[in-house]
Design a protein around this nucleic acid. Structure first.
Lengths: 143, 143
DNA sequence: ATATATGCAAATATTTTGCAGGAGT
DNA sequence: ACTCCTGCAAAATATTTGCATATAT
């Protein structure tokens, strides 16, 4: 459960032969170590403080490059795609009330569960994504 | 693993005190027994053959009502929301190549897995959604 | 009459694409 | 020069909302 650092993301871009432009570095820096699973929009808002002319296209292009280079992971949890700088296999817990998204470590021994490895005859599973929906500790107390 | 019938969906609407308008009946009929996990757009296209003036708003409103009345379930798998008339707890397998979405029965004994019931301290899990990503049998053979 | 539903349009949200100009090699 | 990148704009896609009209008690 370790978030990629700016250096990790930048190294990935470099490895892919992409130029380390100020915009890309800023996007990498903004995403690195961010455990809030931001959307492209949220990153763009933060970035326009430093780069008032930064376009959504650049943000999306860079996030897409970062995803390809394993610098981050895209999350489809409903609504806009979210970006997670934690690329070690893990799951997510989403609070139905406040919307908070938390990383969840894999249950130890999970991969050994035979039934989950082969849900359909012939289907070649490449990865399994799990989303826990419910109430986070704070909201559960409030409810 | 049984898909709701038109009657099931209509009964839900009725139970909720909603009027059984021709549009709603048509939408229920169109979704019932459909195992392809259609999007609102796809349903709308099919429906405009019979109701050329049917609006997307009506489709979304009705699908939302059907979801509230447990007539169907919304799926967030990336891209547009999909609607599944199978409301018994189950998972989904998505083919990365052809995009096909198949229902997957829960592994027997799954719910007994303690670690998955309590992924985060204090988090009150209401349901767990699992998505198997990979290649369906056909595409796996072709690859 | 009253309450609710529909169609239409527009607003909003999300993501992708095309292209002219710009920076670095 | 060449290649790749950026910003801008627009298109494409997805979803929601407001309101006037229509329909059914």
């Amino acid at each position: 459960m370790v978030l990629n650092t700016t250096a990790d993301l930048v190294a990935g871009l470099k490895r892919a032969g992409l130029k380390l432009t100020p915009q890309r570095l800023a996007i990498a820096e903004c995403l690195a170590g961010d455990g809030t699973h931001p959307t492209a929009q949220e990153l763009h808002q933060r970035l326009t403080e430093r780069f008032p002319s930064m376009s959504m296209a650049t943000v999306y292009n860079t996030l897409s490059a970062l995803t390809r280079t394993a610098g981050c992971r895209e999350l489809d949890l409903g609504g806009a795609t979210r970006f997670d700088p934690n690329v070690t296999p893990h799951d997510h817990a989403v609070c139905e009330r406040c919307g908070a998204i938390r990383d969840v470590e894999l249950s130890p021994g999970y991969d050994a569960t035979a039934g989950e490895q082969c849900p359909l005859p012939g289907f070649r599973v490449e990865r399994i994504e799990r989303v826990y929906r419910g109430l986070c500790a704070q909201c559960a107390k409030a409810a």
